[in-house]
Design a protein around this nucleic acid. Structure first.
Length: 224
DNA sequence: GCGTGATCATAC
DNA sequence: GTATGATCACGC
């Protein structure tokens, strides 16, 4: 059972439902994984824990977690009211070679075409080992949600192509935002500058704002 | 450095 | 209390 791998959507969903209600400590013990005192130095620990339990295998490839099923896995920390505590990272931001790219073939649309959301207790007042896994939500964007994302994506990508990357802050975008995504402040990557020249800037990523993920959780009538 | 997994921590 | 900008760990 420890090497579980889902062959189809239903198996994955059943496995995810099985985890619901259990604490991170219980699942980590079952998988023989060490539990850190906190997430300060292992921010992706819970995500990796759930990935392992559900049999995801994409590793660090730019691929969905369950490539054969076309499903992306995302844990989302929530408070006691079931509301998101953090934004959700989607993908790195392509800063170069964006001539002619369109929403339909973008990484954002691809990654978010089908997502298995796993709400997890995220309040820091709860010891990590005691935080529990919530009920899974298998989600595909509604027509309206996709339009919302497409609109933000279009606006932001237009700015990047036009050399406005340094003007973009997390405030841009209604539901999709751009923020730094790097090992530290020294990381640099190429981008288009104001005059069309190549500049070096901090790597960035697309994130879903909490107002967007809140809709997903509420529409699913989620509780933990 | 890039892309995976994200949350931290400080300014507001 | 919370959002933005910064950061942690890992494989390659």
């Amino acid at each position: 059972m420890k090497n579980f791998q889902p062959c189809n959507e239903q198996e994955l969903l059943n496995r995810a439902r099985l985890a619901a209600g259990y604490s991170f400590g219980e699942i980590a013990n079952y998988l023989n994984i060490a539990i850190p005192a906190n997430l300060n130095k292992q921010k992706g620990w819970v995500g990796n824990l759930i990935e392992t339990f559900l049999g995801a295998n994409a590793g660090s490839k730019a691929e969905r977690d369950f490539a054969n099923l076309g499903i992306e896995l995302k844990t989302i920390p929530v408070n006691k009211q079931g509301k998101p505590l953090e934004t959700t990272f989607v993908s790195v931001l392509p800063l170069m070679a964006n001539h002619g790219v369109i929403w339909e073939t973008s990484h954002v649309k691809y990654k978010l075409s089908k997502v298995l959301w796993i709400p997890i207790e995220g309040e820091r007042s709860i010891p990590l080992a005691q935080r529990k896994v919530g009920h899974p939500i298998l989600w595909t964007p509604t027509e309206q949600q996709e339009q919302q994302l497409k609109q933000d994506w279009q606006e932001l990508m237009d700015m990047i192509v036009l050399g406005q990357i340094e003007k973009i802050t997390a405030c841009y975008g209604t539901y999709l935002q751009i923020r730094p995504k790097a090992a530290n402040g020294k990381a640099l990557t190429e981008a288009i500058g104001e005059n069309g020249q190549i500049i070096l800037t901090r790597p960035r990523g697309f994130y879903l704002k909490k107002s967007f993920t809140l809709q997903i959780l509420q529409n699913a009538n989620c509780y933990i």
